[in-house]
């Protein structure tokens, strides 16, 4: 599957099917992130049920604490 993630076309393995898989793939699952799919923000409790399709536009912003 190909997704446009943060403006960049990225090829993803078969195993990535939903938002939760995507965050795991990017090793962001333990971090607090805001995820937007095709301009809709996804609630954290809906990460597993939100399936992704070829060409979806995904924006991911994760929170960090340094400064």
């Amino acid at each position: 599957m190909e997704l446009i993630i943060n403006g960049e076309m990225i090829q993803l393995p078969e195993s990535v099917k939903n938002v939760s898989d995507l965050l795991t793939y990017f090793q962001l699952n333990n971090k607090i992130a805001i995820v937007e799919v095709n301009l809709n923000i996804i609630n954290k409790q809906d990460y597993e049920t939100t399936t992704l399709s070829n060409g979806d536009k995904v924006e991911i912003v994760h929170f960090v604490g340094g400064g």
């Binding site: 943060n6 403006g7 805001i34 937007e36 923000i41 924006e59 991911i60 912003v61 994760h62």
Partner: peptide, 20 residues
């Protein structure tokens, strides 16, 4: 908008978060 960037990976993102 919530804005984030990675200067080394050349990425930039901004999300409208009003609905949160």
């Amino acid at each position: 908008k919530l804005v984030s960037f990675d200067l080394w990976k050349n990425q930039h993102t901004a999300i409208r978060v009003d609905k949160v």
